[in-house]
């Protein structure tokens, strides 16, 4: 082989077999599939399979995917530092209920909560109680644990605290002999 020319995948596969068992190779590599017309045929066949799978998907399978998608959305939002004022606790709870294809009233009955209380929470007029959050954990069979909901509330609360300038100014007059330096200014 010429210097500088990279090995083909078949050559790499053959070389790996001198060093590792097939099981070990499978644990560490996925090689590219076929190319050209063979790849086209493979994709066409898979497309047909996928179409059939979509058409025959059971309601439970659909629900699993929808709920997994929602859980990833929540986790992704909690992971990022950015705050989106539309992505609050009530938004994700509304999504949860929508994905179940239930009315708010039916869902309130499922978790034995007064429909009026649920409505207040969904419209952000009342903070959710611990009781509601634990019932969400139980309802979701722990797929949406209480901690996940609490973290959403925490993020929402942190955002509100940082933006409540009026209250900060009101409280300022009650504080004396505070620190005189600021990390923000020191780092500049």
């Amino acid at each position: 082989m010429k210097k500088g020319k990279s090995k083909s995948y078949d050559e790499i596969f053959e070389a790996l077999q001198q060093e590792y068992t097939l099981e070990e190779i499978a644990e560490s590599f996925v090689f590219p599939g076929p190319q050209g017309p063979e790849r086209e045929a493979m994709l066409a066949e898979f497309t047909a399979f996928r179409k059939h799978a979509r058409a025959t998907e059971t309601p439970e399978e659909k629900l699993i995917v929808r709920m997994l998608e929602l859980r990833f959305q929540v986790q992704h939002y909690l992971k990022t530092d950015a705050v989106d004022e539309h992505l609050h606790f009530a938004h994700f709870l509304k999504e949860y209920i929508t994905r179940l294809a239930k009315t708010n009233k039916d869902f309130a009955a499922d978790i034995d909560i007064d429909p009026a209380e649920l409505s207040l929470v969904l419209n952000r007029r009342r903070q959710p109680t611990d009781k509601l959050i634990y019932r969400l954990q139980i309802h979701s069979n722990e797929n949406f644990p209480a901690v996940l909901w609490f973290k959403l509330l925490e993020k929402e609360r942190a955002y509100e605290l940082s933006r409540n300038k009026e209250l900060i100014d009101k409280e300022r007059k009650h504080v004396k002999k505070g620190l005189t330096f600021s990390f923000k200014k020191l780092s500049k």
């Binding site: 590219p32 996928r50 179409k51």
Partner: peptide, 13 residues
């Protein structure tokens, strides 16, 4: 409209 999936083209550890 096609395979409607994510393809793992390559993995290496």
């Amino acid at each position: 409209e096609t395979a409607d999936a994510i393809e793992i083209s390559l993995i290496e550890v």
